[in-house]
Design a protein around this nucleic acid. Structure first.
Length: 318
DNA sequence: CGCCAGGTCGGTC
DNA sequence: GACCGACATGGC
């Protein structure tokens, strides 16, 4: 799955110095940064500004399989960016294998070719997806921003001041009230406990990452605010466990519609089905199916219409 | 007012 | 095991 190291070279675009990263296969930077995996990227024209490993970066996609990292980025940072974007993953191979899984996946891949599964930082990703529980993307983004501006380090970057995502000790000293004031709601307790655990060492995210998918998932689920779905998101988006298949409302809808004629199906059954169907690349399939499901929603394909398409009389069975 | 959002938890049966 | 209501918050 992982082939060559991505090519990183010093370069210049429109008079700006920086590094050019070459991707292994299709890449759609815009889609990859705005597909609900990451919550802190801001777009201005065709330039994306974000924070990777605490460093402020600006990216753009000058051509089909390239990313430009605006200077003054070091080679080391450029390589972090390449790793974050998972440019070393052979995306052509992934997309071909998924397309071979059937016409639905083929369409889903066609729709979102170049959608990468990012390799983010486990700590920030864990908190972000604890926040995601029964929440909308706009709200999740707002809470993460509130936490960062209230408790993260205020830093001067090459493109202006910015706030790093708070470290565990910063969230611990923020306390329950501090986190609550960031509008985290009932997820506050989970955030507090996760921060305390990581700080005192009883929760070791690196160690969890080094375990098998099954063991790592059990250890994550032991934490408050992390259930099956959130654990799978953390495992997939930050720990390279590509067999993880997070099942949320969107995945449930699209899987039921495309593969089960709209009939009811428990989340457990969906996970089992995905493991059977996609095996070690279920996580990539999940990303494409999720985008596919969201696309339906964007084109105002609501419950009734989905039901009609699936040939159902009762949209309530959806 | 209602329902929904990249769900989880602590009850029940 | 499985099902169910409560849970903060904001948008529509």
């Amino acid at each position: 799955m992982v082939n060559k190291r991505p090519v990183v070279q010093k370069s210049m675009i429109d008079g700006s110095l920086g590094y050019l990263l070459r991707s292994e296969g299709p890449l759609n930077l815009d889609m990859s940064l705005n597909s609900g995996q990451a919550f802190r990227w801001r777009k201005v024209d065709d330039v994306y500004e974000g924070i990777i490993y605490g460093k402020q970066v600006r990216l753009t996609q000058p051509s089909k399989e390239e990313v430009f990292v605006f200077g003054p980025a070091s080679r080391e940072l450029a390589e972090f960016v390449a790793s974050y974007l998972a440019l070393d993953i052979d995306q052509s191979d992934i997309e071909e294998r998924l397309a071979a899984c059937g016409s639905h996946l083929q369409k889903a891949v066609e729709l979102s070719s170049g959608l990468r599964t990012l390799r983010q930082e486990p700590w920030e990703t864990s908190i972000a997806f604890i926040i995601s529980a029964n929440n909308g993307v706009a709200n999740i983004t707002r809470v993460i921003e509130n936490l960062s501006s209230s408790f993260g380090d205020r830093l001067e970057g090459p493109f202006g001041a910015y706030n790093a995502f708070p470290k565990p000790e910063q969230l611990v000293s923020a306390g329950h009230d501090g986190i609550w004031s960031c509008k985290a709601g009932f997820r506050t307790r989970g955030i507090c406990e996760a921060a305390a655990g990581v700080l005192d060492g009883s929760v070791d995210l690196e160690l969890i990452e080094s375990r098998s998918y099954e063991v790592a998932k059990k250890q994550l689920i032991a934490l408050r605010g992390i259930g099956e779905k959130v654990a799978d998101c953390i495992l997939l988006f930050s720990m390279g466990k590509y067999e993880a298949f997070p099942v949320d409302v969107w995945i449930e809808r699209i899987v039921r519609l495309l593969y089960f004629n709209g009939s009811k199906l428990s989340h457990k059954e969906i996970r089992r089905w995905a493991a059977e169907e996609f095996g070690d690349i279920a996580g990539f399939a999940n990303q494409f199916l999720f985008n596919y499901g969201r696309k339906f929603a964007a084109t105002s394909l609501k419950r009734d219409e989905i039901a009609a398409r699936a040939g159902l009389r009762d949209p309530d069975t959806l």
